[in-house]
Write a protein that binds this DNA or RNA. Structure first.
Lengths: 219, 219
DNA sequence: GCGCGCCCTTCAGGTCAGTGTCAGGATCGG
DNA sequence: CCGATCCTGACACTGACCTGAAGGGCGCGC
């Protein structure tokens, strides 16, 4: 399941992100509404977690706009404001559920599970890129109808590209995705993994931008 | 169809009662085990919904006693999320199914429908995976026409795979399914159970994705 | 109550795929 | 043409995974 988290609190946000990835879902984390808008422009999500108080505006109008343009993605509101009026406003704006901070991470898991169950049985959405078919939930890739098996690292890398198609990703960004800071890798690991990906998925799939990074080529 | 609901939570109980009556069934609602015993003394039911945590005792011994005296009424267990490990015990005690709170009322309707169909003499829907035939409602697996007996843990594990075919399931997800969060298992139990499942169901049935988890192979 | 048997967990030893590193060659930009 | 950057085959090592066996807990039959 793909989740979009819109939350400016870095501590809470990190905790939520970790919990959700531990539950086996993938997550994108926007810290501002405009950033969230960018994510929504390029990808579809199965669930949105929305904080109501954000640096560049309140969540309700954002949610209202989302619904107005026909987006029916389930939305769970996260907020410190436990006032009933906010709750009502949130539900009026089109939220599906509501959680008041501070909340238990296990409770979050429970609600996630409820949403996920609603999706169980439905086929997963497929992303198509030329002759590639990508099932982000199942972590599977098919090339010309035949399954391609990717290793853990390869998948993480490829997922980064698929989630941000057309977008230029620097090696630093990719390294962070693979190794999350801690170990400053100083060899050409990324290049090697990109090379292996290309061998499996097709040479022209990932294009290199000299001195800058890589980008998923247009279908 | 006649349903006996054993549940002490008045809010959840009322919701379930309303849903079931709305579905056109009749229901008796006991809030304690001794009360449930009285109902069972005077009437026969087609289905029992059993909460595991009740004011006057736990559900498992009750269920065990029920089975011991030959009652084969289908039983669906209702359990809170933080008691998932109870479901193992529940299956051992003779439950037919379980639902984790909070659950969708529509999901409840679906399971009721399954029981009703079986009650009416119609066979359950079978999931076919190569030479395997799986009856999710009856908890039975046949391989090449011959019945395969799975233990409680094996079944829970296998069910997780069948419910999400093609999907990659991490060990963390599987552990959570088997043990809830509480007891962070630190050994290779999952591996051992997968190994046993493979031995019973066929080596190639469950494929391992190194560093990521397991997946039910395509038929 | 008491043993018996089933099931689950843990452990240890062995195997091998995945990964990081490196080096030589290819390619690009200026 | 030269330096910087990137590509990719080869290789060794780590740790993830498999599996047989041992030990303990629990229900069940006697």
């Amino acid at each position: 399941m793909r989740v979009l988290l819109i939350e400016d609190d870095t501590v809470l946000g990190a905790a939520v992100r970790d919990q959700i990835t531990a539950d086996g879902h993938s997550i994108d984390w926007a810290k501002r509404l405009d950033e969230a808008g960018q994510y929504l422009d390029v990808a579809a999500y199965d669930l949105i977690l929305l904080d109501l108080m954000l640096p560049d505006g309140r969540g309700q109008p954002f949610l209202r706009a989302l619904r107005k343009r026909g987006d029916v993605t389930p939305v769970i509101i996260l907020t410190a404001l436990d006032q009933i009026s906010d709750r009502i406003e949130g539900l009026n704006a089109g939220a599906d559920d509501y959680m008041v901070k501070p909340f238990d991470l296990s409770e979050l898991s429970a609600r996630l599970g409820a949403v996920a169950r609603r999706y169980a049985g439905n086929p997963n959405p497929l992303v198509t890129l030329g002759d590639l078919q990508v099932d982000l939930a199942a972590h599977s890739v098919h090339r010309a109808g035949k399954p391609v098996s990717l290793t853990a690292r390869e998948w993480v890398l490829f997922e980064a590209f698929v989630q941000r198609p057309q977008q230029l990703l620097s090696k630093a960004q990719l390294e962070e995705r693979l190794y999350s800071f801690e170990s400053e890798i100083e060899s050409n690991t990324i290049e090697v993994h990109v090379s292996r990906l290309r061998k499996k998925l097709g040479r022209e799939r990932i294009e290199t931008v000299r001195g800058m990074g890589y980008r998923l080529g247009a279908p």
